[in-house]
Design a protein around this nucleic acid. Structure first.
Length: 160
DNA sequence: GCCAACGTTGGC
DNA sequence: GCCAACGTTGGC
């Protein structure tokens, strides 16, 4: 199957693309997802090598901060089994895990975040899930044409 | 900090 | 199965 494209949201106050670039191996496990749609995308459709737009949410400004890739296919999210963890979920059984995560690897940081407000101005991005009114999905598929367009925008960013 | 939009839970 | 109440997300 061909490579797929995704967008994954993170609050930079919690975990930013700079944190990813600084982590050991420039790789992290994407734990804490507790939404079934988002989980299904990670569990059923993400493959090693898939490309990811790294999105900063609840930020100033919110927007696409760079590119990452999928480094490991979905496996059980251990934070669901940890009673002390914020994301603990009694419904997740280690023998039949309810929640899964993938590994995400740093690829590139845009010199400047592409703000959501700017993305909304491009007709080339019409229909993108991120731009749908009321869209909250933290892991979402992206069409190749939309992905390519945003990567080009990112490459053209002037240095801030 | 506000609040609209959405997902989940639980009573019935 | 309906739907009100509640909790969360995330832009602004």
């Amino acid at each position: 199957m061909a490579r797929s494209f995704w967008l994954m949201k993170s609050e930079p106050d919690v975990y930013s693309i700079d944190d990813l670039a600084a982590d050991e191996g420039q790789t992290t496990c994407w734990d804490g997802v507790r939404n079934y749609q988002a989980r299904n995308f990670m569990r059923d459709s993400m493959k090693v090598g898939d490309q990811v737009l790294f999105y900063h949410s609840n930020a100033d400004p919110s927007g696409v901060a760079g590119i990452a890739s999928i480094a490991a296919q979905a496996y059980a999210d251990p934070t669901a089994f940890d009673k002390k963890d914020k994301h603990y979920d009694a419904k997740s059984d280690p023998d039949n895990p309810a929640w899964m995560m993938v590994d995400v690897k740093f690829v590139k940081r845009f010199s400047k975040v592409i703000p959501l407000s700017e993305l909304k101005t491009y007709s080339q991005l019409d229909g993108m899930e991120l731009l749908r009114r009321g869209s909250r999905l933290s892991v979402q598929p992206v069409e190749k044409s939309h992905f390519d367009f945003i990567v080009k925008l990112g490459a053209k960013r002037p240095k801030s």
